[in-house]
């Protein structure tokens, strides 16, 4: 029995996607992992979901991505979040060391936490 049903991974690096997908599944963190290559694709996917259908419970969000980065995604998601009956919990997943990024993250209430890459089993265990 997995911890969560639906997890969305917004990440442009294929290796990171593969690694995350593998870990999530290995640790039975989620039954289903959906990945999007950048923020734009992520927003487009979320917008396209059936309002009554299942929505991702957890979103792992990278910051540095082409076309639409993590911050752009968060701003765009603010615009569409009213559509969701239950809002996903967003975890920033990044290698950043820039303190500005941490400050910026606090401005978004949907952001639960900042997880440093690589995503580890321990990090997943702390998410309940």
């Amino acid at each position: 029995m997995a911890k969560f049903i639906d997890v969305l991974l917004v990440e442009d690096d294929p290796i990171t996607i593969m690694v995350c997908d593998r870990i999530i599944k290995m640790t039975s963190f989620a039954e289903k992992v959906k990945s999007c290559e950048n923020g734009k694709i992520g927003i487009d996917y979320l917008s396209g979901l059936n309002q009554d259908g299942p929505t991702p419970t957890i979103i792992f969000l990278d910051i540095n991505m082409p076309v639409m980065n993590g911050w752009d995604f968060l701003e765009e998601f603010e615009k569409i979040k009213s559509r969701f009956s239950s809002l996903p919990r967003i975890y920033l997943l990044s290698s950043t060391v820039d303190p500005e990024d941490y400050k910026k993250a606090q401005k978004f209430t949907l952001v639960q936490d900042f997880i440093s890459k690589p995503l580890s089993k321990e990090a997943l265990q702390n998410i309940n």
């Binding site: 690096d13 690694v19 290698s95 820039d98 890459k117």
Partner: peptide
Amino acid sequence: QQFSFITSHNLRAPVANLLSLLSL
């Protein structure tokens, strides 16, 4: 500073991948 943040980020990213791959 920005350069150092960015470079460290871009160095960490592949290293993180390597670490993850190893763990798997």
